[in-house]
Simulated scan of single mutants.
Amino acid sequence: MPATPRDPHGWDPFPSSRSEVEGAREASSPDAASPISAGQLAFDDPDFLTRAETRGLRLQLEWMKPELHLIEAGIRSTIVLFGGARIPEPGTEAWAARNESQKRNLEAASKYYDEARRFAQIASRHSANSSGGKEFVIATGGGPGVMEAGNRGAKDVGAVSIAFNISVPHEQEPNRYVTPELSFGFHYFAIRKMHFLQRAKAIAIFPGGFGTLDELFEALALIQTKKMQRIPVILFHREFWQRVLDIEALAELGTIAPGDLDLLTYAETAEDGWEAIRAFYDIA
């Protein structure tokens, strides 16, 4: 088999593993009921790749695949937008409501959908105009609710956006506003979180549930312990957050330093949130 150049930066004299897989499949007997697992190429053996013992390989692959795509797309930085999957678009039914009270509350919370969409429009417009869509790119979890609003806001202004989708029972499919070539699927929450924060220049957090809280505290812990550079962490709608979290109580007790309260910025509107980012990075 002749060597084929695959490396865009030079000559690669080795045949690709893909061509080897295709050749092995062509050479296999059509009468065989199934391939013999032990004799399969390791990287073409789903049974081997999904064993408990190969979890480390899957973790590495799950990090590497989106990373290579993002490098090839030239994405240099992101604004990560977190928020509740169950918050509906205004005028639509709250699909996740368990009773009438929840239905009313979730439908009233649809204002957060609109605010997230407007914030994504503002940030994406700046991204497109200042860097050709390579800096401050909106990244969400790719699901419904506030995540959908973020991807939708980017699409409204003709900008790209990223989805880091997770396989969970109610949010397995990315929303229809995600840029298809920047939509990534994950099994492992830990690797997904790495990708959320790896290029983040700001985190915009709208009201949500356990997942949103988890993502908030992951970022705060990394910034507090200096495992990550300080970036704006913006909580939208102070009333919601102060009802749900009493961060000041942690400072009063002494389990966090008083200065740790400054890691959070509150915003009421999309414009407030963008102004916090603009001021932090001295954007004209």
Results as ranks from 00 to 15, higher is better:
Glu20Lys: 14
Phe186Val: 03
Pro13Val: 09
Ile234Gly: 03
Thr92Glu: 05
Ala123Pro: 02
Phe210Ile: 13
Pro90Glu: 08
Met228Asn: 04
Glu115Gln: 10
His69Asn: 12
Gln60Gly: 09
Val146Arg: 06
Asp156Arg: 12
Leu213Gly: 11
Leu216Pro: 00
Trp274Val: 03
Leu220Asn: 02
Ser130Glu: 14
Trp95Gln: 14
Gln198Trp: 10
Ala109Asp: 11
Arg18His: 09
Phe14Gly: 05
Ser161Trp: 04
Glu268His: 10
Glu148Tyr: 06
Trp95Arg: 15
Phe43Thr: 08
Trp95Cys: 04
Asn105Glu: 15
Leu261Glu: 05
Met64Lys: 09
Asn151Gln: 08
Arg51Glu: 15
Leu81Lys: 00
Glu72Phe: 02
Leu250Phe: 15
Asp44Ser: 15
Glu115His: 03
Ile277Val: 15
Glu53Phe: 07
Asp260Phe: 02
Glu20Asn: 11
Val178Asn: 09
Lys134Asn: 06
Glu89Gly: 00
Leu245Lys: 05
Phe164Thr: 02
Ala219Met: 12
Thr269Met: 01
Gly211Lys: 05
Arg58Val: 04
Met64Phe: 08
Met194Pro: 00
Glu115Ser: 07
Leu59Ile: 13
Ala123Ile: 10
Phe189Gln: 07
Pro46Trp: 14
Thr92Ile: 07
Ser19Ile: 08
Asp272Gln: 07
Arg104Thr: 15
Asp45Gly: 03
Met147Leu: 02
Asp7Lys: 07
Asp45His: 14
Glu275Thr: 11
Val160Lys: 14
Phe186Ser: 03
Val168Cys: 07
Ala96Gly: 08
Phe217Met: 13
Tyr188Asn: 10
Ser77Arg: 09
Ala24Met: 11
Phe196Thr: 07
Val146Asn: 05
Thr265Leu: 08
Gly259Ser: 13
Phe206Ser: 00
Asp214Ile: 07
Lys201Met: 08
Met64Leu: 15
His195Arg: 01
Ala109Gln: 09
Ile166Ala: 02
Ala96Thr: 11
Ala149Asn: 01
Thr225Cys: 03
Phe240Gly: 00
Ala270Asn: 03
Leu264Ser: 03
Leu70Asn: 06
Ile231Thr: 09
Ala139Tyr: 01
Leu197Asn: 06
Phe189Ala: 06
Phe119Cys: 09
Pro169His: 12
Leu106Thr: 05
Phe43Cys: 05
Asp31Gln: 13
Ser16Met: 03
Phe236Ala: 02
Ala221Met: 11
Leu261Lys: 08
Ala159Gln: 10
Gly39Ile: 05
Glu275Cys: 00
Ala257Met: 12
Val137His: 04
Phe217Gln: 07
Val157Ile: 07
Asp214Ser: 08
Arg176Met: 10
Trp241Pro: 00
Pro169Glu: 13
Ala204Val: 15
Ser16Pro: 01
His237Cys: 06
Arg117Trp: 03
Pro30Trp: 08
Leu70Arg: 14
Ile79Gln: 01
Met194Glu: 02
His195Asp: 02
Arg118Gly: 01
Leu182Thr: 01
Ala108Cys: 07
Phe189Trp: 11
Leu70Asp: 05
Arg6Ala: 04
Leu263Trp: 07
Ser127Lys: 01
Gly273His: 04
Ile79Ser: 04
Pro5Trp: 13
Ile36Cys: 09
Trp11Ala: 10
Ala128Ser: 14
Arg6Leu: 12
Val146Trp: 06
Ala204Ser: 10
Tyr266Val: 03
Ala200Thr: 06
Ala163Ser: 14
Ile71Asp: 12
